[in-house]
Every structure is written in C-alpha cells, then in structure tokens.
Amino acid sequence: MSEKKFSKKHEWVSLDGDVATVGITKHATEMLGDIVFVEVPDAGKAVEKEGQAAVVESTKAASDVYSPISGEITEGNKAIADDPGSVNTDPEGASWFFKLKIKDKGEYDSLMSKDEYDKFCKENPS
C-alpha cells in the first residue's frame, strides 16, 4: 500500500497497484457528527475525478462523497452501509467507502500529502 493522499473535499486515497481505496477523513467525520446512513457504489460503476460516488448522512444532513480519482468501481464497502456508525470510529481504516481501478496515476500524485492536508484543514476551518 502506498502512502495516503488527501483531497480538498476531505476524502483520502491509498493505492495498491492500480486499485485505489477511498474513504472520508477523520476531520470530515468530526464536521459531520454522528453518521447514520451510508450509500456506497456498486461494482462496475464508472466515476470521474471529483464526481459524486457515494452518500453519507449524519443526524444533521446528507452529503455527497466524491471520488478524488477517476476509474471503475471494483467494490463498495457493504459493512459501512450496514453499520454507518463505524465510519465515526475508524474512518481512515476499516471504514473505507469504495475501491476502484484507476486510469491515471497522475491524478493520485497530484493530491495532497498528509502534512499538506492538515495545513489545508487549519487554514479552512468550517
């Protein structure tokens, strides 16, 4: 597994060969609050970079989850759809959202490093 990279929309990506794993960041879960519903994409679905790929809902509101990278979905994490609260407890580990076969590694390379992301969050509090 490669190092995690991060998007401005608070998703993380790790890469294993040409298969990327995508989830939402701990910072994102803290902003959302208690997560009570998750919808993940089915295998075979094509997603564009920054295109809508999944849905996450807290007690307060529904939000879209975007794919920071384009490709074809190979798996959605059914475990988090069954237990949405697990996203609050382990967002950057077991509670990933989906895996996809990527087309362009350049898209991954252009995302933020952990340090860059932490700095981005500090500069853009919401």
Partner: peptide, 9 residues
Amino acid sequence: PIQYKDGIV
C-alpha cells in the same frame, strides 16, 4: 446551541 461536545446521538 445545535449540539455540545458529545454530539446529537
């Protein structure tokens, strides 16, 4: 206040 530290649930 919409919520405090513990959160809504």
